[in-house]
């Protein structure tokens, strides 16, 4: 709320030419700084997204699209495969996102205090695998899950248990995919946390240590709160990534067995690209959009800028 108040003040002074100029001096550069990005963003991102919204109210035909109001939406909710996919995707997100962010935070926190050389080494080892495409990572994981030759069944065998058909069992397949997601170290998250920790003023830690705070207290009371904006970013990005999980599904299960691992974007892809029903695919995307947006706003309320501001205020006093 605080930020919007200031924005109001800035916009509220438009009365005389002199104050116009003054206002422009104050806010003009901001628009100029935004301009190049907004032009490109508007053209190549906002327009396609807007088109998707419009198309969601149409029945798409190659030569003859026409408006059908909310029918696509009604039909999407009647489609059990789509609603099932929503539920699968929701479960996938709920399980994987917190775990992957927590992993990134813990690994980054452990790596950050190490010497420069160790930090460099770990940063590279955790991030570099991200450059290998998901397709190849999925190939490795198909081997790990392989019934006869796989690593997991080898481990299971050591404990004297029967081999498991990880991706083939209806109740297990989605959990196997979650396991895969959680066990792949979140390279981007670690990299970002390290970058964010790197820009925290070290004197903050010093002061706390002089006050007699333990390392864990410093981490909990200073490091983690200061990382909030990064955490918010990671939370939103991982959530979007998890809600839009696609390549892993195509590479690992194709949505099967049955519809056990069917996810929203996989359904959207089939609806649009295979069945050529772009109107329906757009409506399904908008439904996904509304769900993610709802959660994102909620997360913003919990974690967003206000949290940071409040913390700063407290610190300044």
């Amino acid at each position: 709320m605080k930020t919007e108040m200031t924005a109001q003040e800035a916009g509220g002074r438009i009365s005389s030419p002199a104050s116009w100029l003054k206002t422009w001096k104050k806010i003009g550069p901001a628009y100029l700084f935004l301009l190049p990005k907004l032009l490109l963003f508007g053209l190549f991102t906002v327009l396609p997204v807007g088109w998707t919204f419009l198309l969601s109210f149409q029945e798409y035909e190659i030569f003859d699209s026409h408006w059908i109001g909310l029918r696509n939406y009604a039909e999407a909710f009647r489609n059990e495969i789509f609603t099932g996919a929503l539920w699968n995707t929701f479960r996938y997100t709920i399980v994987t996102v917190p775990l992957s962010i927590l992993t990134a935070l813990i690994i980054a926190s452990l790596v950050f205090p190490l010497g420069h050389r160790s930090q460099t080494f770990f940063r590279a080892s955790f991030y570099l695998p991200v450059v290998t495409s998901t397709v190849i990572v999925a190939m490795v994981w198909r081997w790990i899950f392989n019934y006869r030759f796989g690593l997991l069944n080898h481990v299971v065998g050591i404990f004297g248990m029967q081999p498991v058909d990880w991706l083939g069992q209806t109740d297990l397949a989605l959990w196997s995919l979650m396991l895969m997601n959680v066990l792949i170290p979140p390279g981007s998250g670690i990299l970002l946390y390290l970058a964010a920790m790197g820009s925290v003023n070290p004197s903050l830690f010093e002061a706390a240590r002089i006050d007699g705070a333990s390392a864990f207290q410093i981490w909990r009371k200073i490091t983690v709160p200061l990382l909030k904006p990064t955490t918010f970013y990671l939370l939103i990005l991982s959530m979007i990534g998890a809600f839009q999980v696609f390549t892993e599904i195509v590479m690992m299960t194709g949505g099967g067995p049955g519809n056990a691992t069917e996810t929203v974007v996989h359904v959207i892809y089939k609806t649009g690209f295979r069945d050529f029903e772009y109107g329906m695919a757009s409506a399904q995307s908008v439904i996904l959009f509304i769900i993610i947006m709802f959660i994102a706003v909620f997360q913003y309320k919990m974690l967003g800028d206000e949290g940071v501001e409040r913390h700063k205020k407290r610190r300044n006093k």
């Binding site: 906002v46 327009l47 807007g50 088109w51 919204f53 419009l54 198309l55 699209s65």
Partner: peptide, 13 residues
């Protein structure tokens, strides 16, 4: 923005 989108989308569509 909505108007701009609508115009462009119809043109494009």
């Amino acid at each position: 923005l909505g108007v701009a989108l609508f115009v462009s989308a119809c043109g494009g569509g």
